[in-house]
């Protein structure tokens, strides 16, 4: 059974068919060609597929594609146009990415935090990315990068 879904993908209206039981992640990666959200665990445990739906942080792998009908879906790709988001710059400056697999999800989670809480404490940053696993960096460079952007955005 296929169902039509219409939603906004990174500001652009899209219409396509979804299979029953298909996840938003599969729709984004395989049908829309947006490979920025990653498939990690498929269980909601790693955060690699983090996206924003109507501004709220969500896991694309656990989102039934049909439920985003009429919604605004944003992936990390939305943040880098036309210029890199300060978080993306800071992740490079602080060596906060190694293999890079967790990075899109981390940046979406971090951007969601900073949009709602521009001056987070270190503990609030840890809480905000607590659903995003990174097996390379040990998290410290990621936390430092997010705090650096917060300091920079508040003073600007």
């Amino acid at each position: 059974m296929t169902t039509p879904v219409h939603f906004t993908h990174n500001g652009r209206p899209v219409s396509l068919f979804t299979e029953a039981g298909e996840s938003l992640l599969s729709l984004l990666r395989l049908k829309l060609g947006d490979q920025t959200p990653k498939y990690g665990c498929g269980q909601g445990g790693c955060g690699a597929c983090s996206v924003r739906i109507d501004g709220q942080l969500r896991l694309a792998c656990l989102t039934l594609a049909e439920t985003v009908d009429g919604a605004e879906v944003e992936t990390v790709a939305a943040l880098s146009a036309p210029n890199l988001d300060p978080l993306q710059e800071a992740f490079m400056d602080h060596f906060a990415a190694q293999c890079g697999y967790c990075t899109p999800g981390m940046i979406v989670a971090a951007r969601t935090l900073l949009d709602t809480n521009p001056r987070p404490s270190r503990d609030e940053v840890i809480e905000a990315i607590s659903g995003n696993l990174c097996r390379c960096t040990g998290y410290e460079p990621i936390i430092d990068a997010i705090l650096a952007v917060a300091a920079q955005e508040v003073s600007a």
Partner: peptide, 9 residues
């Protein structure tokens, strides 16, 4: 329960 994204869902 879970982390922020999971709590939203």
């Amino acid at each position: 329960v879970g982390a922020p994204a999971l709590r939203n869902m």
